[in-house]
Amino acid sequence: MTEDILVLIKENVIQGRVTQDDEGLEEGMVGQPGVSELTEKALAQDIGPEDIINRGLTEGMDIVGQKFEAKEYYIPDMLASAEAVGVAMEILEPHLAKSGIESKGKIIVATVKGDLHDIGKNIVSILLRGAGYMVKDLGNDVDPQSIVAAVREEEPQFVGMSALLTSTMIHMKDTIQALTESGLRDKVKIVIGGAAVSEEFAQSIGADGYGADGFQAVRVIEALSSSVES
């Protein structure tokens, strides 16, 4: 029974189905439980969050990654699967502490002050959740002080900032300055992204990393996680 439901979770991650209303890549899946219903069901059957994560969600995402590398899957497939995993992780979040399982890390993400463009930030959020991170999304047009307040309250390991416009990217620097003045800069790693910015700009404002796209952002954060742990 346990095996069956974990296999179903894994299969539905591969199909990128969040709920029973979602279609998969194969025909006739609408109406069958998706990852969120299956995760609830697994918890109700006392299957541990660790098994759900490791044998359901992670194994599913591993296969999705392989399919993506093999060019069998496209970015929309990757995002659909990551979204399904992200939703499952939200369901599992209250149970993780009880089970003594630590999340891979908490990340605050925001589009900076004056900028309403949040597609990139949303994609990064989906991918990070899919990769097992807890993501606190502050939205768009977020001023530096709001980010400082969120860091103080949420105590994340990472801050991710996005900007599309050359006129708003300067607020990334302002935010880093505000975090420094608040004594919080050393407590977080800061990663930036968005069409307006570059690796060079990230270095110039004192960010810790730069992601050219959603996938690179996840890789950069994974690398920074390893360096923090070591």
Binding site: G16, D21, Y74, D77, L79, I119, N122, S125
Partner: peptide, 20 residues
Amino acid sequence: RKVMGTSHKLYVRFVRSALR
């Protein structure tokens, strides 16, 4: 309507069947 109910407001998952 479905996408407007999500936090990310992205249509990407609906691309998949059309693509294939």
